[in-house]
Design a protein around this nucleic acid. Structure first.
Lengths: 137, 137
DNA sequence: TTGCGTGCAAAGGTTTTGCATGGCA
DNA sequence: TGCCATGCAAAACCTTTGCACGCAA
């Protein structure tokens, strides 16, 4: 099992920059291409998908399933930030992303590790559901 | 807004029976067709999808979306039963999808609802991480 | 007889892959 | 120079839709 070198290509840097600039939103693969097109940059579809794949593997980008049937969304993860530690809840109705710092979730991690031999990675895990505001309607 | 009549056709009954027999698993639309083919029954793709759609609307079947792009899974809901809901764990190394039925997760749902006003939807939530087998290497 | 259901093929949409070419290190 | 990356088109995938025909009630 050997590590593969990762080249810093123009495309990869621009995709990364685009996501970092839009860190408060979350973009689909195609929206990333659109954003880049606005500033005169064209990048092939497959390149975007392949770049995102690597960024997710590196833990620099988080992938969301926005809505069924629709395309996935991607969002920048601030390095060293709190997001690496806490959990995320995403409302499937309004799309809001809630950052959750809570000891109960640490217990969850421990429980799953001890009883089910599985180490949860919360940089990739998102809990989907309905937030309080949407549930009250 | 008027109710639409629902006919009890051969296909619908067989699909329902197939899901009910496999209640401890969850099947994709195509797996349902495969199962039926084993006993010499052939049902068109679209029929299966359309039947499942109605069964979900009736609350007789639950749909799980483990991963975007991949096929959805369907599972029978026991009437009056305990609603054996489960969560999914996915190993990001070997790709294995683990079905987790565990009371701790019910506690998690309750906790998040009571303390954070958020209703977790376990039909589309997947916890990512490293499974025991991969972690030991 | 009415109108919902079926099944085929085709369409739709997102993501992946094959392959020749390009470019980082 | 040796690989990895790119980009195009094509393929792969799951799901939905159009339409003529079938069948439950």
């Amino acid at each position: 099992m050997k590590e593969q070198k990762i080249y810093r290509t123009r495309q990869r840097l621009q995709i990364m920059e685009c996501i970092a600039l839009n860190r408060e939103k979350h973009l689909t693969a195609d929206e990333i291409r659109e954003e880049l097109k606005k500033i005169g940059v064209e990048i092939g579809k497959s390149t975007v998908y392949r770049a995102l794949e690597k960024l997710i593997a590196e833990g620099r980008v988080r992938k969301y399933i926005a809505e069924e049937g629709k395309s996935a969304c991607y969002q920048y993860i601030d390095e060293g930030g709190d997001c690496v530690r806490h959990f995320h809840l995403k409302c499937t109705r309004c799309g809001r992303l809630i950052h959750l710092e809570c000891d109960f979730l640490k217990d969850l991690e421990r429980h799953i590790f001890e009883h089910h031999r599985f180490t949860v990675d919360n940089t990739r895990t998102v809990l989907y559901g309905i937030c309080g505001d949407c549930g009250n309607e």
